[in-house]
């Protein structure tokens, strides 16, 4: 007697994305029922339900950790974007690097960068198995902020050189 084989993709998806709680037994139960008269549509429905339930259950079992991680990551990203906006805004307002680096600008930038670092450290601590990934994300973000900041400063400096030919700018520089 030839035994019917259930859809292999569905079985593979169940193994990869299903619940770790007696996952093998659930897969075995599904195969047993499939061989006793189930069809492919029924099997896919069961596997889809199993994956959805496993995802929901994963969130339910660690709600605070998940919320903690999302909020701290969002906070860090928002602070990084705000830092960029502050750098760009300051670069457009001022005409030299020395003028740009005033006390208020420095304080705001330090606070925002502190939020970025703390946010990423907290999200890394919550998500321990993915610390490497979080560290790479943090490095990439820091690199992005620095590169964009330096780029903006260079651009502002170049623009200042061109626009400084106007009479008003010449007057100001005098």
């Amino acid at each position: 007697m030839i035994e019917r084989t259930p859809p292999q993709l569905a079985t593979w998806l169940l193994k990869k994305c299903g619940s770790p709680y007696h996952g093998d037994s659930l897969a075995g139960d599904l195969i047993e029922q499939y061989r006793q008269g189930g069809n492919a549509v029924w099997y896919w429905k069961q596997v889809t339900a199993a994956i959805l339930i496993a995802r929901v259950r994963a969130i339910q079992t660690m709600p605070w950790a998940a919320v903690h991680k999302i909020v701290s990551r969002q906070l860090a990203e928002t602070a990084a974007v705000l830092a960029l906006v502050v750098i760009v805004d300051q670069a457009r307002r001022t005409h030299s690097l020395a003028e740009m680096m005033n006390h208020t600008f420095g304080s705001i930038l330090i606070v925002l960068m502190a939020v970025v670092v703390i946010g990423f450290l907290v999200s890394m601590r919550v998500d321990k198995p993915r610390q490497g990934q979080a560290a790479i994300n943090a490095l990439m973000l820091a690199f992005g902020v620095i590169a964009l900041g330096v780029g903006t400063l260079t651009w502002a400096d170049t623009t200042r050189g061109d626009s400084c030919r106007t009479p008003a700018c010449v007057c100001l520089n005098k």
């Binding site: 619940s19 709680y21 659930l26 069961q46 339900a49 339930i53």
Partner: peptide, 8 residues
């Protein structure tokens, strides 16, 4: 009832 619900 979905088998996965029973296991949950």
């Amino acid at each position: 009832v979905a088998l996965a619900s029973v296991y949950a």
